[in-house]
């Protein structure tokens, strides 16, 4: 009788452990790419961001030290954030804060920096960057292969044209499609390589992972140079 009880307890304990492990694994594998869902409430919240307060935060939180006073970085190590659609900056900062980009080299650094930022802070600073002009175009010779990918994609590899999402001028689009025009080529290359390798996973439905996964390293370098050489003179809404 004691033996039976002992065995039953063991089975129950083992079952509990398996269940806990399965639950943890399920949580791990079903963790969404991003916690940001574009409900109308979220959209309105982001739209109502205060750019003036965002400008103050840019200085106060020392974002400007890497990303520049207006969001145009002076060092290619860091991305420019000026002119990005407000939804993109909001989502990516939330993703950093919620450790959705932990797999990338800068993911935890940014997570630490934005840890204390509230949703309101993020919306405000996103509004500030969005009202500034995109960085100017870099001098570069346009690669035909990159231009073809941008405008036509590659049907054989099921790659849609970059411009379909990122805009004909690389200006980004509603709600969270980032602008690429004038961006640091180093950052663009690093991002696409992170998507390709699966280090960066905050793209909903794996859209960029699927695309970058089929691009060659040479193509990624070409696209990075190509978009850095694009320029949009107007500020985003």
């Amino acid at each position: 009788m004691r033996n039976y009880r002992h065995v039953t307890l063991r089975i129950l304990a083992l079952s509990g452990l398996v269940a806990a492990g399965a639950s943890a694994m399920a949580q791990e594998s079903y963790s969404p790419s991003s916690n940001v869902a574009w409900t109308i409430e979220t959209l309105n919240f982001v739209r109502n961001g205060d750019p003036e307060r965002g400008g103050l935060l840019n200085t106060k939180l020392e974002c400007a030290s890497c990303h520049g006073d207006t969001g145009v970085s002076s060092n290619d190590t860091w991305p420019s954030v000026a002119g990005q659609p407000v939804g993109y900056t909001y989502k990516v900062l939330r993703d950093y804060r919620e450790h959705k980009l932990s797999g990338t080299a800068r993911g935890e650094l940014m997570a630490y920096i934005v840890e204390e930022m509230s949703d309101q802070d993020i919306a405000d600073i996103a509004s500030f960057y969005a009202q500034n002009a995109l960085p100017p175009a870099r001098a570069s010779s346009v690669q035909e292969a990159a231009q073809t990918l941008d405008l036509l994609g590659d049907p054989d590899r099921l790659i849609p044209p970059c411009s379909v999402c990122h805009g004909n001028k690389g200006q980004g689009d509603f709600p969270d499609l980032p602008a690429l025009a004038g961006q640091s080529p180093e950052f663009l290359e690093r991002s696409m390589m992170d998507f390709k390798a699966g280090y960066r996973v905050n793209d909903v439905y794996s859209r960029m992972r699927l695309i970058a996964g089929t691009l060659t390293e040479e193509e990624i370098k070409g696209l990075a140079a190509y978009f850095a050489a694009k320029g949009v003179a107007v500020a985003q809404e």
């Binding site: 036509l152 994609g153 049907p155 044209p161």
Partner: peptide
């Protein structure tokens, strides 16, 4: 229809 380009290979 209703597409500006036909990038279908």
């Amino acid at each position: 229809r209703r597409v500006d380009t036909l990038p279908y290979g």
